[in-house]
Computed example of a mutant assay.
Amino acid sequence: MTQTVPTDVRLPWGTTPNGEFTVKGTVVASVMGTLAVFVTLPLGILGILLSCQGLDRVARRDHSARRFLIWSWICFVPGTVLGVPLAVLLLASLIKNLLA
């Protein structure tokens, strides 16, 4: 017997009714999660934990799943906002040193 998601439940962005990420959701979560872990460790870990809880709740058809996943994306944002410029600066510095 298969279960379907009730029509009144909106799935969080990037998830399937089975509680898994879509391909786009996987790519975005992986990049943002990695940057968050390396740049803002506590927020990165918290984001990963909230994401796991949210995906589990999507699979159980719990209405709070959307809230958990939104908070996980919010936890990933500072690491991404800080991580991208830092990565660009690091890459520019490495190229400058190689060419000098």
Rank of each mutant, 00 (worst) to 15 (best):
L86D: 04
W71Y: 13
T15F: 06
P12T: 07
P42S: 05
P42F: 06
W13F: 12
V39N: 07
F68V: 00
Q53I: 15
L49G: 06
G25E: 02
V88Y: 01
V31M: 03
Q3H: 07
D56Q: 15
G44M: 05
V31N: 01
L98N: 09
A92I: 06
T40S: 02
L86R: 09
H63D: 14
L94A: 11
R61L: 12
A100Q: 14
R66F: 13
G19C: 04
P6L: 02
L82C: 08
A92N: 02
G83F: 03
V77C: 05
V58G: 07
R57G: 06
V27L: 13
C75R: 02
A36D: 02
W13N: 10
D8F: 13
A100W: 10
N18H: 14
V37P: 01
V58E: 10
L11H: 01
G47M: 06
P6N: 06
Q53H: 11
G33P: 06
L55S: 05
T15L: 09
S30V: 09
W73K: 10
L94D: 03
S51P: 01
I95H: 03
M1V: 06
M32R: 04
V39R: 01
W13E: 11
V81G: 02
N97E: 14
H63G: 10
V23Q: 10
L99V: 14
S93K: 00
L98P: 08
Q3G: 11
H63V: 14
L50F: 13
W73D: 09
V23F: 14
L91Y: 07
S93N: 11
P12W: 07
L82G: 03
L69N: 07
A92K: 07
T2I: 09
V88Q: 00
S72A: 15
L94V: 12
D62A: 13
F38D: 01
T4D: 07
Q3N: 09
L55D: 08
G54L: 08
A87H: 00
L69H: 03
T40M: 05
R67I: 12
I74W: 12
D62M: 07
V88G: 03
L82H: 01
P42A: 09
P6Y: 05
G79P: 07
L55Q: 11
N97P: 11
F38I: 10
D8N: 13
G83M: 04
R10K: 15
V5P: 02
T22F: 08
G25R: 06
L99S: 12
M32F: 11
Q53V: 15
S72V: 08
V27E: 04
R10Y: 12
T26L: 11
C75W: 06
L86F: 10
K96I: 10
L89R: 07
L55W: 07
M1Y: 00
S30I: 01
L82V: 03
R67T: 13
T40V: 14
V81T: 09
V27K: 00
F21A: 12
G33T: 03
C52K: 15
S51D: 12
T15S: 12
G79F: 05
T80L: 13
L43S: 08
F76V: 04
V23N: 10
A100S: 14
C75I: 06
R10S: 15
M1C: 00
V37M: 08
Q53L: 15
I45W: 09
T26D: 03
I70H: 09
G54H: 08
V27Q: 02
G47A: 09
